[in-house]
Amino acid sequence: MNAESGTITEFSTVMLVEDDKVLSSLLKSYLEQSSYVVHQVFRGDQAARSQIKIQPDLIILDVGLPGKDGYKVCHELRATYTGPILFLTSNNSEAEHLAAFNVGADAYLSKPVSPQLLSANMDALLRRLRDKHHGKNRQKLTVGEITLTPGEQKCEVNGNDILLSVFEFELLSLLMFNAGKVLTRDDIYKLLLGREYDGSERSVDVRLSRLRDKLISQGVVKTQVKTIWGKGYLLSADEH
């Protein structure tokens, strides 16, 4: 991403992982007209290697890919890639949405999708990424064993770096800035997704559960993301 650019999309690099070559070419043409730099990948088992080579700002990922399906690809990418991943697939069930978020997706769109809706989602994801790199608040924030450096999107647990996706970092930042305070689902949806909670969607619950598991696996013991039934979530730290 061009740090000096006045627009979000200009010169942003996109890795498009889509096996339908006709659709891939159409998307590539549209995105290039919107000033994106687009690299096409047609197989799931080539995605991780291509990501290391391309270093994209954003990844668009299909599910039904030859060689390796999109869920496995996303899980593999999240071992090293912290940028936004947008699923674009014909699967539209709630289970498919939740499966995508559970492996680290930041957004999920169903085919067919209008170019305008795709662009709007990409802009929102890249805006979050830009704000993380160029945000005003660059001071470290520490709660319990966890330390965040917002300006660098850096997360440390007991001094060791851990990889978080853009959304996971935003979610953890929100919880840490409000440590000791209950955040309702509506709070989280409005602050992070810019929309109201509809009362039934579980995407944030799934991603919060994934974040909690990731922190625990990295040795976080004193700091807990607690579910306050009927209310929301709370981050607490036992200092003793």
Rank of each mutant, 00 (worst) to 15 (best):
M1N: 11
A3D: 11
K21E: 14
K21S: 12
V22L: 13
V22S: 13
L26H: 10
L31N: 06
E32A: 10
Q33R: 09
Y36R: 01
V37Y: 10
V37E: 12
H39V: 07
F42Q: 09
G44Y: 03
Q46M: 10
Q51A: 15
I52Q: 14
Q55V: 08
P56A: 03
G70K: 07
G70I: 03
E76L: 12
L77E: 03
P84Q: 01
P84V: 03
S90M: 15
N92A: 13
S93E: 11
E94N: 08
E96D: 15
A105D: 05
D106F: 00
A107K: 02
Y108S: 03
Y108G: 04
K111P: 05
V113K: 00
Q116D: 11
L117K: 13
A120R: 08
N121F: 05
A124G: 05
L125R: 04
L126P: 11
L126R: 10
R128C: 12
R130H: 12
R130F: 08
K132T: 06
K136N: 10
K136C: 04
R138E: 07
R138V: 08
T142K: 06
T147K: 01
T147C: 04
G151R: 00
G151V: 00
K154Q: 08
C155A: 10
G159E: 05
L164T: 00
L164M: 02
V166I: 12
F167G: 03
L175R: 01
F177L: 14
A179Q: 10
A179H: 07
G180D: 04
D186K: 02
L191I: 10
G194D: 03
D198W: 05
R202F: 07
V204Q: 05
R207V: 11
L211V: 03
I216T: 11
I216K: 14
K222H: 11
T223K: 01
G232M: 00
L234Q: 15
L234F: 02
S236D: 08
S236I: 05
D238C: 06
E239Y: 07
